[in-house]
Amino acid sequence: MATLSVRRCVAAEVAVIAAGEPEEKNYASSTFARQSAGECVYLVAWDGAEPVGSGELEWAPIPELKNLQVAPDRRSHGVGTAIVVAAEAEAAPFGRIWIGVSADNPGARRLYERLGYRPTGRTETFSYTYVAADGSKHSITETAQYLEKRLPG
């Protein structure tokens, strides 16, 4: 991935990103709409002209990086780290950033801790429905543990 970059999504890129989603997912369009409304920043990682990961930095008193995802064939190649670093740059004026990690995702937790994130003690259990890569819908309940990083500002 010689040309990896992470940037805010722009309108002209939504269709390219959405083309890689199951038809009913609608994540790229809905997240771009949230960004347009000022609710978040939709960060997309690109390898040249191909989207290979994304995350949304939700604006709150403590900004929170949510829905970090990396294409399966691009994991362990620095894409997730690049998205986190871009989110930190966006959140720098706030002095800190949060990220939630599912209790059943120790690999992601190791990444965040390696990048300087520390436990807050906050946990949250929630239920949601998502559309998988094959277009099937799944309802799950998970518990997220929140980590925080202080940012130079």
Rank of each mutant, 00 (worst) to 15 (best):
V70P: 00
Q145T: 07
R7E: 02
F94Y: 08
P106S: 00
T31L: 12
P63Y: 09
Y112T: 03
R8C: 15
F94C: 06
G38C: 12
L43F: 00
K137M: 08
C9V: 09
R150F: 08
A60F: 12
V79Y: 03
A60Q: 14
S102E: 11
G48H: 09
A12G: 10
E58M: 13
E23W: 01
E50A: 12
P22Q: 07
V79A: 15
R7C: 10
P106V: 00
P106F: 01
S5E: 05
A2C: 01
T3V: 05
G80F: 02
P152M: 13
P63S: 15
Y42H: 05
T81G: 01
V85E: 12
Y117H: 09
R34S: 15
S30R: 14
S30Q: 11
S102I: 01
L147A: 04
A37E: 11
S54F: 12
L68S: 10
I140H: 14
A33D: 06
W46A: 07
E64P: 11
A18E: 04
L111F: 06
T125R: 13
A91L: 08
W59A: 11
K66G: 05
T3M: 09
I17M: 14
V79N: 07
K137D: 05
A71C: 06
F94N: 04
K25C: 07
G55S: 15
Q145D: 10
D47Y: 07
Y112D: 15
G100W: 09
K149R: 15
G116Y: 01
R110Q: 14
R118F: 02
T3E: 06
G100Y: 07
G95D: 10
F32Q: 14
E88K: 05
E39W: 05
P51K: 05
N67M: 13
E50Y: 02
A33K: 14
G135C: 09
Y117R: 03
S127N: 02
Y146T: 01
L111T: 02
V41E: 12
S76H: 11
E39R: 08
A87Y: 00
A18R: 06
T120K: 07
S36F: 04
P106T: 00
F94K: 04
G121K: 03
D73T: 12
E23F: 09
N67G: 12
R74Q: 15
L43G: 03
D134K: 08
A18C: 01
E90G: 07
V41S: 15
T120C: 08
E88Y: 00
F126A: 05
T143V: 00
T120D: 00
Q145W: 02
H138V: 13
T129G: 09
R122D: 12
S139T: 15
P51E: 08
A144H: 09
A18G: 05
A60W: 11
K66C: 15
R118C: 09
W98N: 08
Y146V: 00
T81S: 00
Y112G: 02
V101F: 01
W46Q: 13
